[in-house]
Design a protein around this nucleic acid. Structure first.
Length: 668
DNA sequence: CTTCTCCCTGTTTTT
DNA sequence: CAGGGAGAAG
């Protein structure tokens, strides 16, 4: 069908359904309506950053820009989905086709989508951190670097070194020199190990998290047709949380934007908290240099917090070594001063927090509007016990996730070999689960599988793999027969999970004798997750890249109506969120900042982290610290309040002293 | 070779 | 607090 485009008469005001001028402040309006060219939005905490992005997407859709030509890169898929939902609601639909997700998931999708066109591997598995550590461990063994007479870094350390090198654009030698000076003389071996790891992944079609970004960046850079093609499809790019991007992500942004430069970066240098992952908040400062002609918009009016809370946040960040570009203000009420509560010990901290939460809830604040934030996941262990005792329902975000537990990973490994039979890491994992099979036998089977006569189906024939002993041979044949009976292309993920769990149950009961029932419940959860998926590949990629956010341990949580649970979260996982009342616990030196924090850059990051925590609160902010801590070798040791609080003038905080109730006389 | 047991480590934060 | 590593036994 031919189309004929009627031009608007000159000077005719375009009519939009949405009153952008009326619903946004001046700075937000400018950001939401500048649709061409590079734009940098420096958005303070609570300044309506998400709102601005939502209205910008709506504006684009209303302007007639096809939604599928827009990419919105955010820190989590949930964030992207939420924004697109809101934008869609504003314009009455049409935003669903915006491509949204993380850099990793976008890279994953593009590498797969264009694999056939450019001759890249069409099937690959994604290694999570522990998978990649396992692969590195195998490489280390193979190189004979694990002999006892010689100390050599453990696989976790090696993984950290390799990852830091990739994410910061350094050589292995650079990283060792700056962070592991004690390993200086091992550099050549560490490099050999890295090379072996890289080869191994290549041969087996395996990509770790870093490879997703690295390969995507390199291909965009080295294959001009690829970059051209993507720029033709995706004409408008938005990147949220730009302060937490690393150099690879900045490169990708630049390559996707191309000379046209229709790119908006949104972020806040004061909230950069992923330096440990290679993020460099200076990215945001150098954005205008990378994109000449950048229009810079600063959002400084805070709509979230009371002035009293903001004062504390501003005081925390004012002490930062580097100058920041803005100071937040609000027109909201002054509000009560945030409280600073020293507790004699952790137990009393937990009691105080629990009782105070119940008090706030009694005033009519829903539990889901209250959050407890902490530096490290384990800081909430004691509180979790107390909450359970008091019958307060909660969900926990951050920390060890159930997708990372041994039993869930075991089931995943079965699914992964179905998808990618060359995934030796997963083979290794499931083979070791078989009775009678150790590292040696597993190796033999994997070698056989990758040899000319090896095949999944052949594995089901007893004796196919030479050199296995009776028990091992039978177990391997059984495994082969089982896996051959599954057809990943015709069966849907929930059915596959169900079959694998059935097969795996006896193993689970053997290996985890004491807590098998609890682990089985996790697997039932896992089966439910699979129901949303049609294809195995997509399911596996999502489990690696965007796993469910809830941490393990909520089996302890009391069942609560949807949305009626208190939130416990690491500060990292609280990014971008807000609550009516926020508790920050464990504000003692050694916990927050953590004891590992030594150099100044790290202290600065801890400072930004506390800033993020404080600015999550709308009405109430309560800071607590335990005056003593229990150490199993040292016993009770005194704690000092966090040095990060030194920067906060005393008059900004209301000190609270905890007094224990007198024990009541026994009734006669 | 595999399995079992015991001990030790070491426990940020996440894609 | 558990997961990994080392050492001994089957």
């Amino acid at each position: 069908m031919a189309t004929f485009t009627i031009r608007r008469a000159a000077g005719e005001a375009r009519s939009f359904r949405i009153d952008y001028r009326g619903e946004l402040n001046d700075a937000q309006y400018e950001a939401a309506t500048a649709l061409e060219g590079p734009v940098l939005v420096v958005a303070g905490a609570g300044s309506g950053k998400t709102r601005t992005l939502v209205y910008r997407v709506a504006r684009m859709v209303e302007t007639g820009i096809p939604a599928r030509s827009i990419v919105l890169l955010t820190f989590t898929r949930r964030a992207a989905q939420e924004m697109l939902r809101r934008a869609g609601a504003l314009v009455g639909g049409g935003a669903e086709e915006v491509v949204g997700g993380t850099f990793h998931s976008f890279a994953n999708t593009m590498l797969r989508r264009y694999a056939r066109v450019f001759g890249w591997p069409e099937v690959f598995s994604i290694l999570d951190r522990s998978d990649s550590e396992d692969a590195i461990g195998l490489a280390r063994t193979r190189l004979g670097l694990d002999r006892r007479d010689r100390r050599f870094p453990r696989k976790q350390t090696l993984a950290s070194i390799f990852s830091a090198a990739v994410n910061r654009g350094l050589t292995v030698a650079d990283v060792v020199e700056s962070e592991y000076p004690n390993l200086a003389e091992d550099v050549p071996d560490v490099e050999r190990c890295r090379d072996a790891y890289v080869d191994y992944k290549r041969q087996r079609n395996l990509l770790d998290y870093d490879d997703l970004l690295l390969d995507f960046r390199d291909r965009l850079r080295e294959i001009p047709e690829f970059a051209e093609r993507l720029r033709g499809v995706f004409r408008h790019l938005m990147v949220d949380e730009y302060q937490d991007t690393n150099h690879l992500q900045a490169d990708i942004t630049e390559l996707l934007a191309g000379p046209r430069g229709n790119v908006m970066a949104v972020g806040d240098d004061a909230q950069s908290i992923y330096g440990f992952r290679g993020a460099d908040f200076r990215n945001i400062m150098s954005f205008p240099e990378r994109f000449p002609g950048t229009r810079v918009v600063t959002l400084e009016e805070n709509y979230r917090s009371t002035q009293a809370i903001l004062d504390v946040g501003n005081a925390v960040i004012a002490a930062a070594r580097e100058r920041y570009t803005k100071t937040l203000f609000t027109r909201r009420v002054a509000g009560d001063r945030p409280q600073l509560v020293p507790a004699p010990d952790e137990r009393l901290q937990s009691l105080f927090v629990t009782q105070r939460i119940l008090g706030i809830a009694e005033e009519g604040v829903p539990l889901s509007e209250i959050a407890v934030l902490f530096r490290s996941s384990f800081h909430s262990f004691d509180l979790e016990l107390e909450l359970a005792r008091a019958g307060v329902p909660f969900v926990k975000r951050g920390g060890f996730r159930f997708i990372e537990t041994a039993h869930v990973k075991d089931v995943l490994a079965h699914l992964r070999v179905l998808e990618n039979p060359r995934d030796a890491i997963s083979w290794h994992r499931i083979l070791l689960l078989q009775e009678g099979v150790g590292p040696r036998a597993a190796e033999a089977v994997i070698d056989w599988l990758s040899s000319p006569d090896g095949s999944l189906r052949g594995l089901g024939t007893p004796g196919a793999v030479a050199g296995l002993r009776g028990a091992a041979s039978a177990a391997v044949a059984r495994l082969g027969a089982f896996l051959s009976s599954l057809d990943a292309s015709s069966m849907r993920p929930p059915a596959l999970v169900a079959r694998v769990v059935d097969e795996y149950r006896p193993t689970l009961e053997r290996v985890h004798r004491d807590d098998a029932p609890k682990r089985m419940r996790d697997l039932e959860q896992f089966a439910i997750l699979a129901e949303r998926y049609q294809a195995l590949g997509r399911f596996l990629a999502d489990m690696a890249l965007e796993p469910p956010v809830d941490a393990v341990g909520d089996t302890m949580a009391i069942d609560a109506p949807e949305g009626e649970s208190l939130v416990l979260s690491t500060i990292h996982s609280a990014k971008g969120l807000e609550w009516h009342s926020v508790f920050v616990i464990g504000l003692a030196d050694g916990r927050f900042p953590s004891a590992w924090t030594v150099d100044e850059d790290e202290i600065e990051e801890e400072r930004r982290l506390l800033y993020v925590a404080c600015t999550r609160a709308r009405e109430n902010l309560i800071l607590t610290w335990p005056a003593t801590a229990w150490d199993r070798s040292l016993g009770t040791i005194p704690q000092r309040p966090s040095r990060l609080l030194d920067a906060v003038p005393h008059q900004l905080l209301e000190p609270v002293t905890l007094v224990e109730e007198e024990e009541e006389e026994a009734a006669p």
